[in-house]
Amino acid sequence: MKLREVAEVTQAEVLTGRELLEREVDKGCGADLLSDVLSVVEENFLLVTGMVTLQAVRVAEVMNAAAVLIVRGKRPLEPVIAYAEEAGIPLLATQKGMFETCGLLYSRGLRPTRFRRVSEYAG
């Protein structure tokens, strides 16, 4: 699915990365808890989150995510948007909640990311 379609399906506003809307995203990951994003074993995924913090963008950057979609009509502060712009991370924002956003994207064929299994961790 192209980022352009992600924005259309979720009626999202594109905050940064307008020139990157033809980028393909393969998978989706929904989370507010950033440690869960840090256990994704794939790259080039769409991070769907209710977090508007700088850390959410930085997690996406470290994980080589394709883009961040912020839900629930939250709008990040200007420094966060500026950071995403500079880091080359497309930032989208939708009024819809996490449940509906994931539901709509899933029904349009966006598949879930794979995670490192918990049983793989030492314990």
Partner: peptide, 22 residues
């Protein structure tokens, strides 16, 4: 569940919408 939030939300959304395909 062993599935992540995105997948669970996707499947529950479809289920509640009565869409058997997903």
């Amino acid at each position: 569940s062993d599935d992540g939030m995105f997948e669970l939300a996707g499947r529950l959304y479809a289920l509640l919408a009565g869409d058997p395909e997903t």
